[in-house]
Simulated assay, not measured.
Amino acid sequence: MDAAAAFFENRSTPWSYDSLKNFKTLSPNVQRHLQRVYLTVAGALLVSAIGVYAHILLGIGGLLTSLGFIGSSIWLANTSSSAAEEGKRLKLLAAAAFFEGASLGTLIQAVLSFDPSIVVTALLGSVAIFACFSGAAVLARRREFLFLGGLLTSAVSAMMILQFSSMLFGGASFMYMVEIYGGLLLFVGFLLFDTQIIIEKADRGDRDYVKHALDLFVDFAGVFVRILLILTRNAGEKERKEERRRAKST
């Protein structure tokens, strides 16, 4: 309750352009850590794009690449963050990013065959959302969004219950809408939450930039997939309406 009260109290703080330059709450070490995290995320996204391309060329995406992503992520999380293991952990992050890209390759290839501009729009939209919300978490007051952790966990549980209920009682169409729109809100929330968690951990000496980059990479991928699905669905509905209009006019 105290965190929630602090959040609403902070909403009354007036915004100014000077706040964009206010990094006084972040020590130089934390700022350098964030720079390493964001550069590593950018590298992971590049490797993920290579994974997508590999699937388009070789058709490697599927269950095995999904398991590869999960396995690489768990392996990375359970590997020591000491300097001696840094190279190994970067390779595990690259493997996880590659496998995730290959797994998403099936969806992306289908959308490319339908309308390539959708993929570009989804990517630009995801970058914009990532920059805006992660930047907002960096510039916000310390611990302002940490209260989201409990809310997000509860929302994930609620979505799992709804998904299970739809399997038993039907309503797959409604559940699909909940998954893509609710899932988008969830990943945006996790982006805010994870960014502030990273700041707090770094401030306390946890400079595991590889693991922190993996967390933000997963958030970015979740946002991208859902924007891609939303744009594809909207484009499909628009095309069907256009076809019905043409059919009526003939």
Rank of each mutant, 00 (worst) to 15 (best):
I50P: 02
D2A: 12
A6C: 09
T195I: 01
E86D: 10
R245D: 13
F147T: 08
L90C: 07
G183E: 06
A5P: 05
S81L: 03
L214T: 01
D203I: 02
A6Q: 13
S73E: 12
A4S: 10
T121G: 03
L146C: 04
I56R: 10
I118E: 09
L192D: 01
I161S: 07
I180Y: 04
V210L: 02
G43Q: 05
T13N: 11
S16Q: 11
L45Y: 02
T13P: 05
D18S: 08
F145R: 06
W75C: 10
E85L: 03
A247W: 06
L191H: 00
T65G: 04
A83E: 15
F98Q: 02
Y17M: 14
T79H: 06
A122E: 13
L229T: 00
P116W: 06
A95D: 09
F193N: 01
R226M: 07
G125S: 07
V178Y: 06
M177G: 11
L123G: 07
A136Y: 08
H33M: 08
A6W: 06
L152T: 09
L67N: 03
E144A: 13
Y176E: 15
L107E: 12
T121P: 04
G125P: 11
S126D: 07
N29W: 04
R240E: 15
F98R: 03
I118M: 09
S117F: 12
L104D: 09
A213E: 03
F187G: 01
A4H: 11
A77L: 15
G51M: 07
L39Y: 12
G170S: 12
W15I: 11
G62H: 06
L45R: 00
A110E: 15
L92V: 07
L192A: 01
M1I: 13
R240A: 14
M175S: 12
G170P: 15
A136I: 15
F174P: 10
S173W: 12
S157W: 14
F174T: 15
A110T: 09
V111I: 12
L216P: 00
A110P: 08
R11A: 13
E237V: 04
S134D: 14
F69V: 09
G43F: 05
D115I: 04
T40Y: 04
S117N: 13
T65Y: 03
Q196M: 01
K211V: 02
R245S: 11
V119P: 11
S165I: 14
N22H: 09
V225K: 01
A84P: 08
S72A: 15
D18V: 11
L58T: 05
E200Y: 01
L152Q: 12
L168A: 15
S113D: 15
T250S: 11
L185W: 04
V188G: 04
L214S: 04
S80C: 06
H55G: 07
L39T: 06
A158C: 13
R244I: 14
V41Y: 03
D208C: 00
G51S: 08
L58R: 11
A97M: 13
L20A: 07
A49T: 10
G149R: 07
F133E: 02
M1Q: 10
T153K: 07
H55W: 08
E179W: 10
L124H: 06
H212W: 00
A42Q: 05
T79N: 09
A5V: 08
L39M: 12
F164R: 03
